[in-house]
Design a binder for these strands. Structure first.
Lengths: 153, 153
DNA sequence: CCTCGATATTTCATGATGTCAAGCAACCGA
DNA sequence: TCGGTTGCTTGACATCATGAAATATCGAGG
């Protein structure tokens, strides 16, 4: 009579799923707000954040953001029009265009990340041990290698 | 020399923030995919999920989704065109239109939630204790009442 | 009752996002 | 060199999102 055919449909799991949905919603809101404060859309902010780390071919941006390359063209167009990003030729392949953040783009990306309060203030309420525990649980959830829990090598 | 002016800018916190960003990204992808499998956009799926619980005035949908009411008009239009949602008059206020999921809409919403694998399969890799720990940490992070940790009544 | 301000919804204009198909340039193996 | 593939852009189109204006209704005060 107990129906546990699915991996994890118990009340506890559903509660965690609900909490994660809340985290996702709140994170998203904050990100969108932060982007708006800098006159960027969410998509533009995401691309700029990517390019602030390193220049990338258009194709790779599309892969990271899981959308069509033709979509990236427009987003980079708008960022380029505001001198936050520039297109450079790839010396190794003349088909490729490398999108790179300009100095101003990097500054904007920094300020944007700076203003992302979420998951920083909330985390401040947790002790260091709790944050470490949360990190390990999230890592395991995401399928990364667990940091060698002592109960199972 | 140690610069800890902000509540939580240490490496550990930043790592957790990064993990949360990853969770958010993956959750979003999955949600969008699940919606697409049902020929819905993400926004349509979110509205339908809301209305599957209870009928709501257009205004309240906009509040929940944090967007303009005029935006909801179009989304509900498209859902209504597919008989997933219907508009009803509010008996108490003739200005108000209640959007309500149809039977088919509820079924679609159910199937959609059913196909949302994320945060269910991943969580299956965690023991019950770990899931409980994750739940408590997330709750505290979100500012909800902690489940009375024994160290601090 | 009537008027006036507030509220709920819609419509319109506009811009950004996203997909898809088609096109062009460049690469690479045969 | 030829031909298929790859990277990027363009165009057409649907959706999403905002803001301003129009319409209908509500509610309080005269």
């Amino acid at each position: 009579m107990t129906p546990p055919p699915r991996p994890a449909d118990d009340a506890l799991t559903l509660e965690v799923v609900d909490l994660i949905a809340t985290v996702v919603a709140r994170y998203h809101e904050e990100y969108e707000e932060a982007a708006t404060r800098h006159s960027l859309t969410g998509a533009q902010a995401r691309v700029l954040a990517l390019l602030a780390r390193e220049p990338l071919p258009m194709r790779r941006i599309a892969l990271k953001l899981k959308c069509e390359p033709s979509n990236i063209t427009g987003i980079v167009d708008r960022l380029e029009a505001r001198d936050l990003v520039e297109r450079r030729p790839d010396p190794d392949d003349r088909r490729v265009k490398l999108a790179a953040a300009t100095e101003e783009g990097r500054l904007t990306a920094d300020r944007l990340r700076e203003s992302l309060r979420f998951a920083r203030e909330p985390l401040a309420g947790l002790s260091e041990e709790e944050r470490a525990a949360l990190r390990d649980l999230l890592k395991r959830m995401l399928g990364e290698e667990p940091p060698a829990p002592r109960t199972a090598g």
